[in-house]
């Protein structure tokens, strides 16, 4: 797989570290309750198809990226800097 880093361009995924579904950016409020926190920490949609994930470009620019990807075909649709996704 190759990921399109917004800063470094197209790079082999060996330069990146996968973190998990991008829902991790939507951290619940501290008092959101056990269900919300269970969902945030443990439960996953785990789609067979299009998904959005966090990847870290550790052997490149060091940016966290939100990558849009298909888990069945491995097609990569795009990547943006996570800090821009989180405003």
């Amino acid at each position: 797989m190759r990921l399109p880093c917004p800063l470094c361009g197209s790079r082999d995924h060996r330069e990146f570290t996968y973190q998990g579904a991008a829902v991790m950016l939507d951290r619940p409020a501290p008092d959101a309750g056990a269900e919300a926190w269970d969902s945030y920490v443990h439960l996953r949609d785990n789609p067979a198809g299009a998904t959005r994930e966090l990847w870290y470009h550790g052997a490149g620019c060091g940016a966290w990226l939100v990558v849009a990807r298909d888990t069945v075909t491995h097609a990569v649709f795009g990547a943006e800097l996570a800090r821009q996704v989180r405003r």
Binding site: G20, S39, H42, L43, R44, D45, N46, A48
Partner: peptide, 17 residues
């Protein structure tokens, strides 16, 4: 395919494939 089949019953699992 646990996630997909469980989703047919409206369940989310603590699983990532």
């Amino acid at each position: 395919r646990s996630g997909q089949v469980a989703a047919m019953a409206g369940l989310r699992l603590p699983v990532e494939s």
